[in-house]
């Protein structure tokens, strides 16, 4: 065999992009199971819809941009984007919401910036935010209630024909708590069927499922602890400090376990492309998301805030990178260069 002469290093870690993305997908399984078990088949249907749409559009975009289709599509990144979107959309949202959302994510979130690795924003969250702004009704009213479990046939009808029965859907716990604070005390709110005295059980299980998947990601060294920990810690701190007065502010437990916090902390803000890169930068980035999430959730008009908080911090990522540059060995201080 003729000898091959390539320059060093001659060995590489077997972890490739597809391994990274594949692991992320595997770690999302518990979350999707919990969503399906505790809420609705709608999540699975949305997932299928989003993945198919995403793959088709990815292939189309790559063909248009004259890039090798199989090579890039098998990196699975677009599947992760689709799954994140499907996990974030309301399960009874009409089918076109999912399709439009996925299209936005793939086309405007990713390829318009030059494809893989070039997007400044998290594609799934960009799509989510655009949907929320453009179709506020469909995006805020299609959340399932815990006490009614809709059959798969009815779910399909709801998604594809718009047959949503009023009793199936309601507000998310975060929304519900905030909306009722004006008229009720904390105890009265928690006594409602949604909270069942303490926390909405289904939501908690889902959060724990995301948390479990996230811990596996850290264990497999796909992500580092910096982002999730700093985001959760910041959010917890703020909601604890303000939440002492639970008659005026949502308590920390609901912030952490009854919303998209865990999904966001482990799966969304950890999107490598659009977050800060250094460890210190990641701490700053996570804390920023935590603060913004709390602010938007508490004083803003949207039911959940992960998407906006993430996008805002995406904006800030280049600056964070600039100011958290590590110090090079043998230099007394980090050399920032000019901008």
């Amino acid at each position: 065999m003729p000898l091959i002469t390539l320059s060093s290093p001659h060995s590489a870690k077997p972890t490739k992009i597809s391994t990274v993305m594949g692991t992320v997908l595997l770690c999302m399984i518990p979350g999707f199971i919990a969503l399906t078990v505790f809420f609705s088949y709608g999540y699975l249907i949305n997932l299928a819809l989003a993945v198919v749409t995403a793959l088709l559009l990815e292939a189309g975009s790559l063909a248009l941009r004259k890039r090798p289709i199989k090579f890039f599509i098998t990196d699975l990144s677009v599947v992760v984007t689709a799954a994140l979107l499907a996990a974030s959309l309301p399960p009874f949202a009409p089918w076109w919401i999912t399709v439009v959302g996925t299209a936005t994510a793939v086309l405007f979130g990713k390829h318009i910036f030059g494809g893989m690795g070039q997007n400044p924003f998290n594609p799934a969250m960009l799509a989510y935010a655009l949907l929320l702004v453009s179709f506020p009704v469909q995006m805020t009213t299609n959340w399932p209630v815990v006490d009614v479990y809709v059959s798969i046939g009815d779910t399909l009808r709801a998604i594809f024909a718009g047959n949503v029965v009023d009793g199936w859907v309601g507000a998310t716990p975060l929304d519900y708590y905030k909306l009722n604070l004006a008229t009720q005390t904390a105890d009265e709110i928690l006594a409602s069927s949604l909270f069942n005295g303490w926390l909405p059980a289904g939501w908690v299980w889902v959060s724990l499922a995301w948390l479990a998947g996230g811990l596996v990601l850290i264990w497999r060294r796909i992500i580092t602890w910096h982002l999730p920990v700093s985001m959760i810690a910041t959010l917890a701190l703020l909601s604890l400090v303000f939440g002492i007065d639970s008659d005026s502010f949502t308590p920390a437990s609901i912030h952490l376990l009854a919303g998209a916090t865990m999904l966001g902390a482990f799966f969304i803000i950890t999107d490598p492309v659009s977050c800060a890169t250094s460890n210190r930068g990641k701490l700053v980035f996570g804390a920023g998301v935590g603060v913004l999430t709390y602010v938007i959730r508490t004083w803003g008009n949207y039911p959940d805030a992960i998407a906006f908080a993430t996008l805002l911090m995406n904006f800030a990522a280049p600056f964070i990178d600039h100011y958290t540059k590590p110090r090079t060995y043998g230099h007394t201080k980090a050399h920032k260069g000019h901008k």
Binding site: G117, T224, P272, V273, T277, P326
Partner: peptide, 27 residues
């Protein structure tokens, strides 16, 4: 020692930065 696969775009994952012993920003 398999040969490196074809070069993919950088996804800014920061793994290189985590690995660099010299405190550089490889990406």
């Amino acid at each position: 020692l398999p040969l490196a696969g074809p070069e993919m775009p950088c996804i800014r994952c920061g793994h290189c930065e985590q690995a660099c012993p010299a405190g550089l920003l490889p990406q």
